[in-house]
Every structure is written in C-alpha cells, then in structure tokens.
C-alpha cells in the first residue's frame, strides 16, 4: 500500500476511535447554523440560512484545517515522528498523509454540517451543488492543512500551536464574507474581506448557487493550495534532514 495511505489510515483509525473528538469539533459550526443562521434578523436576504450555509461549511473546514497541525505536533512530541523518519518509505509521505487526513476529516465534518443545514431548511444543496462544494472544500482543506502542518513543524509545543491557531482562525472567519454580503459591509471590512482567502472559498460555493460561477477564483484557489503544499514540503524537508 502507498505510504501516504498507510499514514492516512493510521490517523483516521486513531481519530474515529477517539469518539469524543469526532463529535466535539462539530458543536461550533452547528451552533452557528442554528443560533445565527436561523435566528439572525437580516434585511439583505429573506433566506439567511441559504446565505450563511456556505460560510459555515467553510468555517468547519477552516477550524478542522487550522486545528490539524496539532496532530503533527503530537507525533513530534511523543516520538512518533522520529520513528517514522527512520523508516525507508519516502519522508514526504508523512506530511502528505497528514494533509490528506486533516482534509478528509474536515470533509466528513462538513458533511454532517451539510446534512444539518438541509434538515434546518437550506434549499441550495442540489446534487451538483454538493459535488461542487466538496471540490472547493477539498482544495481549501489541502491549502489549510498544508499551512497548519508547516506551522506545526516550527512550533515546539501544543500551547504555542493553540495560541497561533486562535490568533488566526477567528479573525480569518470574521473578516470573510461568511456572515454578510460585501454590499452591506462597512468599507474597511469590505477591503479586508475581498482579499481574505476564506472569502474566496465561500464566494466560490455561493457563486455556484447563484451563477455566474467564479472559475477564476477556483483556479486561484488551486494555485495557492499547490503553492502551500510545495512550501510545506520544502520546510518539512529542511527541518527533518
């Protein structure tokens, strides 16, 4: 079996058997859907749930991806990484297995959120939309997990990682187009939101529900994701030799 898949299966098994972790990560995005998506009185749309659902899907992936680096930190601290590095299989497989695991874990969590959104009354999720959303979330997940594993390579302990994660995740979410359209944002927020990579992913998914689809953004997102993977593997190679 391919070494990337071997590492991936190990992480998936460990995660699924964790039981508590599997569900606890879903609480925050679910709360956003219910308490904000259903409850917030808005003027710019009469179906806020349909508006916010893509944002919450991306939020789910954002927290799953940014949190993912901690998995590498644990492997580093607990001595697994050194054992893996002494194995003859290609060392990059450790990193790619991690990126795949973090991304797939995020997709599984996003699926639950998607089901919840439909149950709550979201109408945008046609089969084609679901497929498109998965594609965007996958690319965005790869981008994030490559980024978070790169950080994890340089952070020494779990507390330091959690601090960096907190420092980045919430601002990235609130300065994106997740909660409101650009038209109702104050100008300063609009400027930030337009360049926020989180908005790119959200706008892409929304554009599929209300064409024209932003294909240029898709190409941009893929390019940034590839760049991030390249950077992450470059750093990984540098740190582990």
């Amino acid at each position: 079996m391919n070494a990337v898949l071997v590492y991936f299966v190990r992480d998936m098994r460990r995660w699924i058997r964790g039981r508590f972790n599997v569900w606890s990560a879903l609480i925050m995005p679910a709360a956003w859907l219910v308490f904000v998506g259903l409850a917030l009185p808005t003027k710019f749309t009469d179906h806020y749930l349909d508006f916010i659902a893509p944002g919450i899907l991306v939020l789910t992936m954002l927290s799953a991806g940014m949190q993912g680096g901690s998995s590498l930190i644990f492997d580093k601290i607990l001595g697994f990484l050194n054992k893996f590095l002494a194995l003859p299989s290609p060392r990059e497989a450790i990193l790619f297995g991690k990126i795949l695991f973090i991304t797939v874990r995020g997709l599984l969590q996003a699926s639950v959120i998607m089901v919840l959104a439909v149950l709550l009354g979201a109408t945008i999720f046609t089969p084609a939309m679901i497929a498109f959303a998965y594609g965007v979330l996958f690319i965005f997940g790869v981008l994030l997990s490559a980024f978070s594993t790169a950080i994890a390579l340089y952070v020494e302990d779990h507390d330091g990682y959690a601090a960096i994660n907190a420092l980045l995740s919430m601002p990235l979410f609130f300065t994106s187009s997740a909660l409101m359209p650009y038209s109702v944002m104050p100008p300063w927020l609009r400027t930030i939101a337009q360049y926020n990579p989180v908005s790119f992913a959200i706008d892409l998914i929304r554009s599929f529900a209300a064409p024209p689809v932003l294909w240029a953004s898709l190409v941009g997102l893929v390019a940034v994701a590839l760049l991030m993977v390249a950077l992450s593997s470059f750093l990984f190679r540098r740190v582990t030799v």
Partner: peptide, 17 residues
C-alpha cells in the same frame, strides 16, 4: 533506513490501535 530499525526512548505506540 532499509537496513535499520530505531526505537527511541519515548515509548511511542498508538494506544488506540
């Protein structure tokens, strides 16, 4: 790496496997 094995002192086994 094909010819060696390394067991560090950390006792790193996956307890959930």
């Amino acid at each position: 790496r094909e010819r060696i094995s390394y067991v560090p002192q950390d006792m790193a086994v996956d307890i959930k496997l």
